[in-house]
Amino acid sequence: MVARTARPVPAVRAGDVVIALFLLAVFVFAYLHAQEWPFRTRFFPELLAAAGIAFAVIKLAGFGLQAYRHRQWARQAGDETDEQADEQADEHSIEYVFGTAGGRAWLAALAWVTVFFTSLLVFGVFITVPLFTLAYLKIAGSAGWLGSVIYAAVAGGLLWFVCGELLAVPMPAGIF
């Protein structure tokens, strides 16, 4: 007689619990904060925050139950099957890239984003765009000088001509 293997129960991910706890905190804060307002102002946010609290509590209870059932299943099926429960990810998918990128890649990407938006706020769009484009292509993209300079000049020039001159769209001007 073959023993029946229980249906795999995936482990609870710490990130899921943290997000649910964060949302619970947001809803609790919103509920308490709403108490300061007149009835007509607070009615809807209060209703919403109460619903959010209920959903978050149910979700967290669900995580607790899932963790318990996972432990039961792991004990029955053995630890080696734990990894088999993971779904095979497509290596081109955004989930896969976020999940597998190393700490250095994350740090570099976030640093570039920070540099771009800080420069946008400080120096404005017409200085940031050509300079950032040139720096990013040279350093992160390891591109040649000629291509980088042409790209930076075209990007800056087009932006200035189309958005600045032709359409006169307001642009981040920087603080200088």
Binding site: V125, A140, G141, A143, Y151, A155, L159, V169, M171, P172
Partner: peptide, 20 residues
Amino acid sequence: IPGTWLVPFLLILLGIGAFT
């Protein structure tokens, strides 16, 4: 086109798109 060549263009679009 390689991602590194698109990133500056897309960051510009993100910044300007949000600002406008």
